[in-house]
Design a protein around this nucleic acid. Structure first.
Lengths: 266, 266
DNA sequence: ACCTGAACACCGTTCAAGT
DNA sequence: ACCTGAACACCGTTCAAGT
């Protein structure tokens, strides 16, 4: 992997390769730090996350923390990467949903929404990591890893689209069309989720509304693609629920527990 | 305006009302400060914008600057508001485009893309202002003004949609459907622009690609709505160009000058 | 009623000394 | 080869004194 050339003398930790015991320990420590950072944000808000607080909340020294993240922004970038890795796992599961290919793509969008709900903090880290102030000060390695993950996510969508074409569900003018359709799918999902997470101050009713809106938006887009069966010929509301119960039952249970907790407490 | 109750003893400056000469001077100063802040970001990058730099770049004292913005994040929020006001102006112009209603909605999307290109810094301020770290520390007044502007933008879209329904271009199941369609339009535009501005390091070819992708995405969505004439019955590529030349000729000229400038200089 | 800038607390980052 | 934490520079914010 060419991009792994390290001009900075940071901790050795080749990505996606077999690690020595020492390297593994370092990687574990990094995961510890990310968990602690996430906890600070959840407890005290995003702006409360400072390097000082992270250092005093963990068992390592300032210098060691800075061996992992060469700036506060780099830490945010690392959180964004963690978020995208989780998303990728959900997407892989979604891509094997038992149904036709349009339903599988819907499962991808379901997974994205699910991630935004179950891990709101990590989801917002992705948003924050798109910010120029963060990108300017993140390490080249991590920015590269970010685009790599982006490509892997894209690959999953592309593959579903290609299968749909092969199955005759979808007709495309040229092969490059698939990339355009992937981008459109990604854009509607990102846009919907980002705009919805803006005012997520309310409770359960809002959540159901948000899901409905996403399903609606995605359905419009796929109908526009001419992806069969069209929404007037198929009950995607039902597909949506099937995806939830067959693929993500455990995660949804965790959410409803989260919803209940604050109510029973106050 | 109820929400204008000011618990903080900040500078008096009622929004959208007639201002006294003194209040006008204060409002002008605020605009000065925003221009300077924008210049700092353009010259030195987003992370270079500090309150110290803003103070030394302007002719006012630290205390005075803090009378306008009660935190650095509040300053970002103010820049976001400025950005949205400019957007609103462009949208109003777009909404009067000479053509059918689907073309008018397309003009809205054109205006959004145009704004992202001509004022990239301000556009990215909107993205930054969605970030929880900024929202947490912005003043209640400005956050309120932000949602007010959001609503005004929404109103323009809604009105175009309603006119399209009245003209028989578009059929909707229930009146609330209009809100859902507005949200979908907003989501595809925001999503496309946000994702595209992520890697806007390149030149002219990229720009044309970005425009093509946006037109493509929007067309898919509107086709999905069943908004007549459908993209297979009408040349929206041509509409796109007409919008540019008839509505935003001056702005487009400014962009091509910007593109040329760095080439001739280096 | 508003402006000023010194003063303060905290935060991000570095690096010489240690193991 | 990596860890440590004192030290430093800078940044955000406040507020008593001034007009």
């Amino acid at each position: 992997m060419v991009w792994c050339s390290r001009e900075t003398s940071r901790l050795l930790c080749p990505i996606g390769k077999i690690k020595s015991k020492r390297q593994q320990a370092i990687a574990d420590r990094e995961q510890d730090l990310l968990v602690i950072a996430e906890q600070i944000m959840e407890r005290e808000g995003f702006s409360a996350l400072t390097m000082d607080k992270l250092v005093s909340a963990c068992s390592y020294s300032k210098g060691t923390v800075y061996n992992h993240f060469n700036s506060k922004e780099d830490l945010f970038c690392a959180l964004c990467i963690k978020s995208m890795k989780q998303l990728l796992h959900l997407f892989r599961r979604a891509s094997h949903f038992e149904g036709h290919h349009r339903e599988r793509m819907l499962a991808i969008h379901f997974a994205y929404r699910l991630h935004a709900m179950t891990r709101p903090t990590l989801f917002l880290c992705v948003l924050t990591a798109q910010t120029p102030a963060v990108r300017e000060k993140s390490s080249a390695e991590r920015l590269q890893q970010q685009t790599e993950l982006d490509q892997e996510v894209t690959k999953i969508c592309t593959s579903i689209l290609e299968q749909a074409v092969a199955a005759g569900e979808l007709t495309i003018a040229t092969p490059e069309y698939v990339d355009a359709l992937t981008f459109a799918s990604w854009a509607i999902s990102f846009g919907s989720n980002a705009l919805m997470s803006g005012d997520c101050d309310s409770g359960v009713i809002e959540r159901l509304d948000a899901e409905k809106a996403l399903l609606f938006n995605v359905s419009l887009l796929m109908d526009g693609m001419g992806w069969l069966p069209l929404s007037r010929e198929w009950d995607y509301q039902n597909s949506w629920q099937r995806i939830g119960s067959e693929l993500f039952a455990a995660e949804l249970l965790a959410i409803s527990d989260m919803d209940k907790a604050p109510i029973s407490q106050f």
